[in-house]
Simulated scan of single mutants.
Amino acid sequence: MRMRPTLSWTPAEKLPPGTTDLEPVADALRAGGVLVLSGAGISTESGIPDYRGEGGSLSRHTPMTYQDFTADAQARRRYWARSHLGWRTFGRARPNAGHRAVAAFGRHGRLAGVITQNVDRLHQAAGSEDVVELHGSLDRVVCLSCGDLSARRELAARLEQANAGFEPVAAAINPDGDADLTDEQVGDFRVMPCRACGGILKPDVVFFGETVPPQRVEHCRNLVREATSLLVLGSSLTVMSGLRFVRQAAQAGKPVLIVNRDPTRGDQHALTRVELPLGSALTTLAHRLDIPLDGQGTAEERPRG
């Protein structure tokens, strides 16, 4: 379950310090069977902000909760106005060097899989295959009444038509694709119902306070069981949805390696935490392993739905 976000967690003083030594990560990739667990930090170089790092959005923004979205029509209006505006920017984001490096590791047989906590589909756009989207994806929309799935671009077109002239200037775009708007800017924004049954539409993502589907969690647990090591990229591991896989790997005696600029909640379970920017760190690793970054992952990025 993704809990309501909080800034109350402070890393314990006894956690191991970070390092700039990439060799333990390189060794794991040489051995193969590495399972990647990525978080918002891998997408910051694509222009999508982090939740908690320096300048993270939680310092000024609380993401929508499932309870608020389902219970309050005005909250849904506010969410869809902000999300619609945010999608214009969010949907244009392109994979960065970190995404491309992960895709290259996969193409060259070094990975057991990729689990991402992100909802931006940038791993897939870079060329990664069989990515498990732990929290879903913003490019799909689901009806809460009939379960109908549709493409976000279709809803975006409907919202554009129904809200002609909606052109507020957002203070910022957030990791969940939500834009910061005032209630005055939201105004009387029109929300679209499900075309199939008239029900409430929701992005096909796991909101804070909502439960990750059990079958998805079990699939990820199986990936951890089959992997030889776990590589965490750009996640603070503050919420249990990702931290549980770190704990599982550590309990099984599998190396946990973290690349993140700031301390994480999983540091105590890690063999190492590398304090380097992800794009440059992963590019360095690819060069060290003689893995080219051209090809499927660096040509024209694949469409995201």
Rank of each mutant, 00 (worst) to 15 (best):
G109T: 05
T283W: 09
T238P: 02
L138Q: 12
S46P: 05
A250T: 07
F245R: 05
T65H: 02
A299V: 10
P63K: 13
G109D: 11
Q117F: 02
Q215G: 00
C194S: 07
T116G: 05
M1V: 12
I291G: 07
N222L: 14
I291Q: 08
A104Y: 10
S137V: 13
L85D: 08
V191N: 04
E129M: 12
L201A: 03
H99Q: 06
T264H: 05
P213E: 13
R92E: 06
L237W: 06
M240Q: 14
I291N: 05
L15D: 11
A172W: 15
R94P: 02
H61A: 08
E184S: 02
E129T: 15
L111M: 11
T10Y: 02
A170N: 09
R221G: 09
N163D: 03
L257F: 01
A164E: 13
Y51I: 10
V114C: 01
E300I: 10
R4Y: 05
V169S: 09
V205F: 01
D180E: 15
E160F: 02
G98A: 12
P303R: 11
Q185R: 05
Y66R: 15
T65E: 08
Q251K: 07
W9H: 13
V141N: 03
L159Y: 06
L271R: 12
I291K: 09
D68V: 01
T284Y: 03
F90D: 04
S236D: 15
S145T: 14
K14D: 15
T264N: 07
L138A: 05
D267S: 04
P292M: 04
W80F: 07
L138R: 11
T6P: 02
S236F: 08
R140D: 11
R92D: 03
V205R: 00
D178S: 13
V169K: 08
R265M: 04
G242R: 10
R216C: 10
R158N: 03
A196D: 08
T264Q: 09
H123K: 02
